[in-house]
Design a binder for these strands. Structure first.
Length: 213
DNA sequence: TATACGATCACCT
DNA sequence: GGTGATCGTATAC
């Protein structure tokens, strides 16, 4: 039996742009995880763009064994382990050889909510997938999926979702980023306001967002 | 080899 | 508002 997809993943060309453009374009798209033959999915509602040598906050500010994948072909998953207990899901951007990635920070569940609850025991629905570590736990995304091709992988892909009006998007500084002022304040976090559970501008209320009209 | 710390989360006051 | 958990990675020795 040939492998086939329940729906068509977004094409590689979608990711072959600068990270900021991809981060905006990913809002409203559908993350699809197939786990033991069951479909889990959700709409992406919060992203962050990361660059290369121009971005001190990026893992690809320098090329290391871990960040090498960000220098490779676009449309590939970059999953890393952080704080000794969490995973974060990124999508590689830019043409092959040029570093970049987009961090998926938040998702609104659309399919398989029962399984998401099982993966996040004791957590209220509202908080199942409203953070980068949380959504990886809910969708069972670990380092085992690092490097998979999101345009052609049967267990993890991103497919067309809903059209998002630019007036419903907000840009803010990235969360948890330290360093110089330029790095900290660069508005490379994007939130789909109408859908995000943690409503923009910032879950901590420290920064203000700017609507992208 | 050793050490400091992080693109987080949950739970505390 | 603050902090501990917990370990892979990067970087310094």
């Amino acid at each position: 039996m040939p492998t086939h997809f329940a729906e068509h993943p977004l094409p590689r060309a979608f990711y072959e742009r600068d990270s900021e453009a991809v981060a905006r374009a990913l809002l409203g798209q559908r993350l699809v995880r197939v786990l033991n033959g069951r479909r889990l999915s959700g709409l992406i509602c919060e992203t962050e763009a990361y660059g290369g040598a121009n971005d001190r906050a990026s893992h690809a500010y320098r090329r290391t064994p871990r960040s090498a994948i960000m220098f490779g072909p676009p449309g590939v998953a970059y999953v890393y382990f952080i704080y000794g207990m969490h995973h974060c899901l990124n999508v590689v951007t830019e043409r092959d050889g040029q570093p970049g990635a987009v961090l998926i920070r938040s998702i609104t569940p659309t399919e398989g909510i029962e399984r998401l609850r099982e993966n996040r025991p004791g957590v209220a629905d509202r908080y199942l997938t409203d953070g980068p570590g949380k959504l990886c736990q809910a969708f069972a995304i670990t380092a085992a999926l690092n490097g998979v091709d999101l345009t052609g992988n049967a267990e993890l892909c991103i497919a067309a979702g809903e059209q998002v009006d630019a007036r419903e998007m907000v840009a803010t500084p990235r969360i948890g980023v330290h360093g110089d002022a330029e790095t900290r304040t660069r508005p490379w976090r994007f939130v789909w306001q109408q859908v995000a559970h943690s409503v923009a501008p910032d879950p901590r209320g420290k920064t203000s967002g700017v609507a992208l009209v």
